[in-house]
């Protein structure tokens, strides 16, 4: 069996397409690389959707947090505290049990306890809270002159927010936001460790890596493969966010463009 056959059998195994049975003996390096790579699809799915949806909630939360009206500010503060103050791991566990109990309320809520929706919701709320804190910090450091200039032009309300406040906030927050994105992708590996079940052995990269470690009793092959994939993913995220960063700062002279640097945040 050539490696190409393995790719055809297992390349999309994590989505339930291809060979139904996972390899059970005579594990080849190719099988491990292909299956763990197939699992990466889940990590990318979780990370990309949570990040895209979380962006909007994060902006809304940041604005609410900066608002003078306590009816907006207090809930935003509490939301950020709840998700930044507790470990994501515990959030996953707790949410899974809570979702299980919710299921008895209505059959509409059935999908909540499957990873594809339930875990996505937790990741979405979690990254929203972290990003909200980043955007809030940026919102607070908008140069006074920007607002004064907007006043001078007679800009108010939403058009001022869209044309002045938001672009500056994004510019200031972008390097930190890039880090948040990277660590969000890292934390997607917690999904199947933390209570959400893997259905028909469709799991993420870590699920397959630990499957192989379990079967071969040799953790020194699958985990480095997993590590390699994540380093590639990290580099891709840095690249994509770098493009956006250049676009956000396209009016500035070259050397003033803030550099994106990987700064720590890791597991929540």
């Amino acid at each position: 069996m050539t490696c190409w056959d393995v790719v055809q059998d297992y390349g999309l195994r994590s989505l339930g397409i291809g060979e139904r049975l996972l390899p059970r003996s005579d594990f080849t390096l190719c099988q491990q690389v292909v299956l763990i790579g197939s699992g990466m699809l889940w990590n990318i799915y979780f990370g990309a959707i949570a990040l895209a949806a979380g962006f909007f909630l994060a902006i809304a939360t940041a604005v609410a947090k900066a608002h003078h009206n306590p009816l907006l500010r207090k809930p935003a503060d509490a939301f950020v505290l709840l998700f930044r103050g507790s470990p994501l791991f515990i959030q996953f566990f707790f949410a899974y049990f809570a979702f299980l109990n919710l299921k008895s309320v209505s059959p509409m809520l059935d999908d909540l306890s499957s990873a594809w929706l339930g875990a996505l919701i937790v990741l979405f709320l979690n990254t929203s809270a972290y990003s909200a804190e980043i955007f809030y910090g940026a919102l607070m450091s908008i140069p006074k002159g920007d607002n004064e200039a907007a006043d001078a032009y007679g800009m108010h309300g939403f058009s001022r927010f869209r044309r002045i406040t938001l672009p500056t906030t994004l510019r200031l927050a972008w390097p930190a936001y890039t880090n948040e994105a990277i660590f969000l992708f890292h934390s997607t590996t917690l999904v199947f460790v933390s209570g959400f079940p893997a259905q028909s052995q469709r799991g993420d990269a870590l699920y397959y890596a630990s499957y192989f470690a379990d079967k071969t009793f040799n953790p020194f092959v699958p985990y480095p493969i997993l590590a390699g994939y994540f380093i590639l993913l990290t580099l891709t995220v840095i690249g994509l966010f770098g493009i956006v960063n250049r676009r956000l700062n396209r009016h500035l002279p070259r050397e003033n463009t803030p550099k994106i640097r990987l700064r720590p945040n890791l597991i929540r």
Binding site: L206, A227, T234, L266
Partner: peptide, 13 residues
């Protein structure tokens, strides 16, 4: 390397 890889991967082995 340590920062580019999810920590849980290190914890597991």
């Amino acid at each position: 390397v340590v920062r580019g890889v999810p920590d849980i991967a290190f914890f597991l082995f």
